[in-house]
Design a protein around this nucleic acid. Structure first.
Length: 591
DNA sequence: GCGGATCAC
DNA sequence: TATGGTGATCCGC
């Protein structure tokens, strides 16, 4: 056998991001070999190789830095100071909430089997050029989500490819989410096939153990949809998510709610399993000796010296198994961007490329109209036939949402870059403004559409701070309340410095966790919906606008039972839209 | 504010 | 023959 040219890291990289997340098959080395061979020579392969080599170089530099930092430091002393931090973190551990993460088993594939029982027991995959979901039979061959279909075929020649049935997935997902909401009305969906619940109240009210509650949930989902779901039960979202994988498929896992057991559980857990640590961070950490969450403790002094590179606090919390235990549905006003992008066979002709840009503009306009957003900053994204990705952005003084405007700015950004051979074009709009209202003719649009427009004569006529105060203070409620009740978003890992000093020692219900000063944001309670809202950057304006509009809807409906629904529907829409649009041309049903 | 990178799903 | 789309965040400048 000829020795392969690839480094171990490249072979692993080519196997895709989902490998290493799940348990790896015993013959994973053979599988990786097949994947690398099938990829070899392609532009995709060359780009992956380039990225892999750049990362290797970055690691070399990082190790040099580590040696400099550690050689000049009193490691014992550093360790002692980290141990103090650990002690402080441990003292803040909150085991009072019961958090559940649920996850439908191979969701798309399971729905396909329901609709076409012939597929049962066969190796098949949902997707077109790329595998979205593989059936468990296909996974035995090494077929994984995100894998190019032609590679999946090489791994499993009998593989059946099935195209997406998005509307069916949509229906099923809605059903499942509705069932889960019975156990916590504040359920937070995390995509179409998973989500988080806080079942503390439900268990208390129904005098039920967490295990029984989750059994009940899973059996309800199965009896009402014939879909199986796995779940994890733990004191916070990070642990619950990890636990839901433990007895997959169709199982549940309950982590003991005890500090020692939790730290032991984390001890031999691969660092890759924790949210926010992807393939790159895995390699970076591996290079300094960290493979498991237990290794974080071993190398705590090094991590402390390299806080900037690794984010010490987050890793310490991870080692201890401490994370947010707050579960909240996403808020509409939290949205930061809306965009569209499309891949196509590589094009070099300027006119053809502009046609693609136009198509993207048409789609984006339609999405922005449907979801009632407008924005000021346009970012063009393009991918060359070499798979290299670039972005170019431009901020406008006007609110952009029409395809003509999108296209004009898109062209302005793209034309100076040409000539190029391009395989993907995308546009994204940021600096958003919410236009959501019950009726566009009487909605926010009418009052504020021209408010910030440079073309508008009454310039800067936007709802100012003093305007806010009027509407808010008359309802007498705007005051800094006892601090944020949830913070610590379940968002990606901050890979940077975190405060070592609590800003507050006040304890509160879901979790008492100090917020780093650098992240401290002012929040006020909205007089309408009584939720806390960031006050800066127009966010409060935006929120209040939409909230008042929703209030108007509710009053018009004069139907108290519908009020909760009407308040939450826009948020759900956002999440929904996020995954509904996962695949191009599959919004409706398959062909 | 911009551009590159990383990550989740 | 052939490797997705949406959205978020962070860092360095």
């Amino acid at each position: 056998m000829e020795p392969s040219q690839e480094t171990a890291s490249l072979v692993k990289r080519l196997a895709g991001p989902s490998i290493g997340k799940a348990g790896l098959a015993k013959d994973q080395a053979d599988i990786n070999r097949i994947i690398a061979d099938a990829s070899k020579g392609s532009k995709f392969y060359e780009n992956e190789k380039k990225k892999d080599q750049e990362l290797t170089k970055k690691i070399e530099q990082m190790l040099k830095l580590r040696d400099e930092l550690t050689s000049g430091a009193d490691m014992q002393k550093v360790e002692a100071s980290v141990d103090q931090l650990l002690h402080k973190l441990e003292s803040q551990r909150d085991l009072s909430q019961t958090i559940v993460h649920f996850d439908l088993d191979s969701f798309f594939a399971s729905v396909e089997v329901l609709n076409n029982p012939e597929l049962g027991g066969k190796p098949f995959a949902v997707g077109h050029t790329v595998v979205s979901t593989a059936s468990y039979e296909a996974r035995k061959y090494g077929v994984r989500s995100g894998m190019a279909s032609f590679i999946a075929k090489k791994l499993c020649p009998e593989l059946i490819m099935v195209s997406h049935g998005m509307s069916e997935y949509s229906d099923m997902s809605h059903k499942v989410m509705a069932i889960c909401k019975r156990y916590d009305p504040q359920m937070c969906p995390a995509g179409c096939d998973e989500g988080y619940l806080n079942i503390t109240a439900y268990c208390a009210e129904h005098d039920m153990s967490p295990d029984a509650c989750v059994e009940h949930l899973r059996s309800a989902v199965y009896s009402e949809t014939k879909l199986t779901v796995s779940a994890g039960i733990a004191p916070n979202t990070m642990l619950a998510k990890i636990c839901s994988d433990k007895n997959k498929p169709n199982g549940q896992f309950h982590l003991p709610f005890e500090s020692e057991a939790i730290v032991a559980f984390m001890g031999d857990l691969s660092i890759r399993r924790v949210q926010g640590i992807g393939r790159v961070s895995e390699r970076l950490l591996d290079s300094i000796g960290i493979k498991t969450c237990g290794d974080i403790f071993t190398y705590r002094a090094t991590l402390s010296l390299m806080d900037k590179q690794f984010g010490l606090m987050h890793l310490l919390r991870t080692h201890l198994g401490i994370a947010s235990n707050s579960v909240q549905p996403p808020q509409r006003e939290e949205r930061k961007s809306i965009g569209a992008e499309r891949t196509f066979p590589p094009l070099g002709d300027k006119q053809k490329i502009l046609e693609k840009l136009h198509e993207v503009c048409v789609e984006l306009e339609s999405d922005m109209e449907e979801t009632q957003w407008t924005g000021r900053t346009i970012t063009l994204k393009y991918k060359l036939d070499t798979f290299e990705v670039f972005t170019r952005a431009k901020s406008s003084t006007r609110w952009i949402s029409k395809k003509e405007d999108l296209f004009a700015i898109g062209q302005e950004l793209l034309l100076p870059e040409l000539p190029l051979t391009i395989r993907l074009i995308g546009l994204r709009v940021t600096k958003l403004k919410d236009l959501y209202g019950p009726d566009p003719s009487i909605g926010i649009k009418r009052f504020f559409d021209t408010a910030n427009g440079s073309s508008s004569p009454n310039k800067k006529r936007k709802l100012s701070a003093s305007d806010q105060e009027i509407s808010c203070e008359t309802t007498s409620n705007i005051e800094d309340l006892p601090g944020p009740t949830d913070d610590e978003s379940s968002n990606p890992v901050p890979n940077g410095l975190e405060a070592t000093k609590p800003t507050s020692t006040r304890s509160r219900k879901p979790e008492s966790k100090p917020r780093p000063p650098s992240v401290e944001r002012e929040r006020h309670i909205c007089p309408v919906c009584e939720k806390k809202v960031a006050i800066e950057n127009d966010a409060f304006n935006t929120h209040l606008d939409s909230c008042l509009s929703r209030e108007a809807i509710r009053e018009a409906q004069a139907e108290s039972s519908a009020s909760a629904e009407s308040r939450t529907s826009p948020k759900q829409g956002d999440i929904w839209e996020r995954w509904t649009k996962m695949t191009p041309g599959s919004r409706n049903s398959r062909k």
